[in-house]
C-alpha cells in the first residue's frame, strides 16, 4: 500500500472530518447554553442539503416559481432557513422543557427528527438524489504535488475549517462571545446583569442549527441528497462528542477533524472497521479518560 493511497484517503477523511467538526461544534455550542442534546441536528443537516437541492432544481416544478437558487446563494439561504426553523422549534417547544430532566429535550428532538425524516422520505428517494448545482468554478481537480484532488472537496474542507475557526474566534475572543460564555457559566447571574439570556438561548440554538444546515449544503454536491443522510451521521457525531467532551469549542473542532482522518485512514488499512472505528475509539476513551479528551467532569 503506497503512501499516496493513504494520503489520498486521509484527505477524503478530512473532508468527512470537517462535517463532524461543524456538527459537533453546533452540538457543543447548544449544549453549553441549553444543556440539551439536539438529536435533530442530523435532520437539520439533511434539511440544509434539501434546501439547496429544492432551491436549485425543484422550485419551478413544485411551486411554479421560475427561480433558481444557485450553490453560492444556497450557502446563505439554507442556513438561514434551517436556523429560523430551529428558532421556531426552540420558541414553541424546547423552552417548555428547560425546567425538566434534560432527557426530555433529547426525546423531543428525536421526535422532530422522525417527523422531518418521514416527511422527506415521502417525496424523495431514500437512496438519494444527486445535486447538480455544483458551480463551474469548483469543478475539476487540483494538483497538490503528491496527488490530484477534486477542487470542490478542497473548497469544502477549507471553507468549513474557516467557518469553524471563525465561530471559535467569536465565542472565545469577542464581546458577544464573552457574554455567551457568561451565560454558560451562570445564566441567572448573567441575567441579573441585564443581559437577555432567553434571547441568547434562542439565537444560539438557531445558530447551531444553521451550522448544521450549512454543513448540509456543503455535503450536497459530494454525497447524494437523501432523507436519511443525517440519521447515521448524527450517531457518529454523538460518539465524536463523547470522545472530545463538550467542555471546549476548540476541542469539538479538533476532535471532529482528527476522527475524520482516522476514519479515512481506516478505510484503506482495514475497510470492514471503517464505519465502527470511531465507536471503538469512544470505548477506549471511556475506559481511560471517561470525561473525554477535552472534557471537564460535570
Amino acid at each position: 500500500m503506497s503512501m499516496q493511497v493513504i494520503l489520498a484517503q486521509a484527505l477524503l477523511g478530512l473532508n468527512v472530518g470537517v462535517f463532524y467538526a461543524m456538527l459537533s461544534l453546533g452540538l457543543a455550542v447548544i449544549f453549553g447554553l441549553l444543556n440539551i442534546i439536539n438529536f435533530a441536528h442530523g435532520a437539520m443537516y439533511m434539511l440544509g442539503a434539501f434546501v439547496a437541492l429544492i432551491g436549485y432544481s425543484l422550485l419551478d416544478d413544485w411551486f411554479g416559481i421560475s427561480l433558481q437558487i444557485g450553490f453560492w446563494a444556497s450557502l446563505i439561504v439554507a442556513p438561514l432557513f434551517v436556523g429560523v426553523l430551529g428558532i421556531i422549534i426552540e420558541r414553541t417547544m424546547l423552552k417548555r422543557l428547560y425546567e425538566l430532566d434534560h432527557i426530555y429535550g433529547l426525546l423531543l428532538t428525536f421526535g422532530i427528527t422522525l417527523i422531518l425524516q418521514g416527511l422527506f422520505s415521502n417525496y424523495f428517494n431514500i437512496s438519494g438524489t444527486p445535486y447538480s448545482g455544483q458551480p463551474e468554478s469548483l469543478s475539476g481537480v487540483v494538483n497538490l504535488g503528491f496527488m490530484y484532488f477534486p477542487t470542490y472537496r478542497l473548497f469544502a474542507i477549507v471553507f468549513s475549517i474557516v467557518v469553524c475557526f471563525a465561530t471559535w474566534f467569536v465565542i472565545e475572543h469577542t464581546r458577544l462571545g464573552s457574554r455567551l460564555r457568561a451565560g454558560v457559566e451562570n445564566s441567572a447571574l448573567t441575567q441579573a446583569f441585564g443581559l437577555n439570556v432567553p434571547l441568547m438561548i434562542t439565537l444560539t440554538f438557531g445558530f447551531g442549527c444553521a451550522l448544521a444546515g450549512l454543513a448540509g449544503v456543503l455535503a450536497a454536491p459530494i454525497y447524494s441528497v437523501s432523507p436519511l443522510m443525517g440519521a447515521d451521521l448524527i450517531i457518529v457525531v454523538f460518539a465524536v462528542v463523547v470522545i472530545g467532551g463538550m467542555g471546549s469549542i476548540m476541542g469539538a473542532i479538533l476532535t471532529g477533524l482528527a476522527l475524520g482522518l482516522v476514519e479515512g485512514i481506516t478505510k484503506v488499512v482495514y475497510p470492514p472497521a471503517a464505519n465502527t472505528v470511531i465507536f471503538f475509539l469512544m470505548v477506549l476513551v471511556l475506559l481511560f479518560r471517561p470525561a473525554g479528551l477535552f472534557g471537564k467532569e460535570r
Binding site: 422543557l97 423531543l108 421526535g111 422522525l114 417527523i115 416527511l119
Partner: peptide
C-alpha cells in the same frame, strides 16, 4: 401509509413529551 407512519410516530413523540408526560 409508508413513511407517514414515521411522521405520525414522531408527532406522538412530540405531543407526549410536551403535554402528556
Amino acid at each position: 401509509f409508508g413513511s407517514w407512519v414515521q411522521v405520525i410516530l414522531g408527532a406522538i413523540f412530540v405531543v407526549c413529551v410536551l403535554v402528556f408526560r
